[in-house]
Simulated assay, not measured.
Amino acid sequence: MSKPGVLLDRDGTIIVDRGYVGSVDRVEFIPGSVEAIAALNEAGIPVAVVTNQAGVARGYYGIEDVHLVHKHIDEELARHGARIDLWLFCPYHPDGVVKAFARASADRKPGPGMGLAAAQALDLDLARSWVVGDSATDVGLAAAVGARALYVGPPNSADPDVASFPDLAAAVEFILANPDASTAGGPHAVPRRFPAHRFDRADEYGGAYASELYRAFGGVDLTEVAKAAEILLDAYQRDAAVFACGNGGSASIANHLQCDHVKGVRNGTDLTTRVFSLSTNMELFSAIANDLGYDQVFEYQLQSMARPGDVLLAVSSSGRSPNIVRALDWARANGMRTIALTGFEGGPARAMANAAIHVDATNYGIVEDTHQACMHLLAQYVRQSRMTVDAVVSQTF
């Protein structure tokens, strides 16, 4: 089971920030930091260091110098019975002069890359983990990965929404005394959001977007995907109808689903599926909205076309759209099986559906991109399940 951990900044948190510390002779431990790390070790809490090292990109020192500094810190920690479980650093900077490192990177804080890598390597539950550092980039990393932020350093530089401590020793004392604190008066539980700050370069934003998309898709509960696949395959084998619906960008996913789950699924299989999008017929859609109200645009169509045993697949980033909730409620009350694709907090739709594919993200683009991928993988899974092994490996998906 995933566990909480602590992600520490390096310069200004563990050692004195002298500006681009790239050699052992410039390492000076902040009083109490070694003992604080030892206390985390003693409590069984994994400790990772996540540090921006733009000095590599700027040509002030090399990759090997960073490793030597970390080796020296490890040796000093070991003398006091302390250890770092994982070292992560980002040598990239878009304004660097060393060509190999002169680029944007989603690993560079406040980008999420190093936080996600730490979670994967140490099996961390980021929502229960802490990011401790002395700058806004550390608070931004916490926001980007949904962890809890603690600030250490001069109080005049602290974010008013983040608990502030004079040094790492005080912050760790708080963590050990309040492992589950996340309310006002304790460390501020920063909601996962993307973007967590403004980007000045499209390539940097693109890298961060890709990392967030990877995180969001990786967090999808695949047991719910399996439930949805079983519901769809069963419906197609029984010649039951499948109805899809959504608003805005989610409507385009519902429309695309009709294409892939009819044309795509039939390609190389014995299935002739009956799939309909309730978001396509603008004449009918607008007539219902105009005469009866927008909340009924999907429910009204189901009343005319759906039968017990059919399936409704509802796509809603928020899971709260009234017309989606009404459609799911009607479907459930009239013998239909239901699938919901949701994001954000999931809303009522997530709780109502027989299978709920939920995306833990608060960015509409990320949620919709993940929903689109899930729509595709469901179609492709159904298709390949009705093909021979030879056909699967010989055809293009």
Rank of each mutant, 00 (worst) to 15 (best):
C90R: 00
H93E: 02
V56N: 03
P112G: 10
W87K: 03
Y61N: 08
P110A: 09
K71I: 00
V98K: 13
H72G: 04
E64C: 01
D85Q: 07
A102N: 13
A119H: 13
A104P: 14
A57V: 05
A54H: 01
Q53C: 08
V69S: 08
H72M: 05
V132W: 07
A100V: 02
A100Y: 01
S105H: 07
G62L: 02
L88F: 10
W87C: 03
A121P: 04
D74R: 10
K71S: 14
V66E: 02
V131K: 14
D85L: 06
L122C: 11
S105T: 06
A127I: 00
P112M: 09
R108N: 05
D95V: 00
D95Y: 00
A119E: 11
Q53E: 10
G96K: 06
V69A: 08
E76V: 06
N52A: 03
A104Y: 14
F101M: 07
A78M: 05
A118F: 11
Y61K: 08
F101N: 11
F89E: 00
H72I: 03
V132D: 06
A136P: 01
S129K: 09
F101V: 08
Q120C: 02
D74Y: 10
G62K: 09
D123M: 02
G96W: 04
K99M: 04
A119L: 10
D134A: 12
A78H: 09
D123Y: 02
L88Y: 12
R108V: 01
H72A: 14
D95L: 04
P91D: 01
G62V: 04
E75H: 11
K99I: 02
E75S: 15
R58D: 00
A54C: 04
L88E: 13
Q53K: 12
R128Y: 03
Q53S: 10
V56Y: 02
D85Y: 06
L77T: 01
V132N: 06
L124R: 04
G96Q: 07
D74W: 08
E76Y: 02
H70A: 02
G81S: 10
V98H: 04
A119R: 12
S129R: 09
L126C: 13
A127E: 15
C90L: 01
P112N: 10
V98T: 13
H72T: 08
I63W: 14
S135T: 14
H67C: 11
Y61I: 09
A136T: 08
S129F: 05
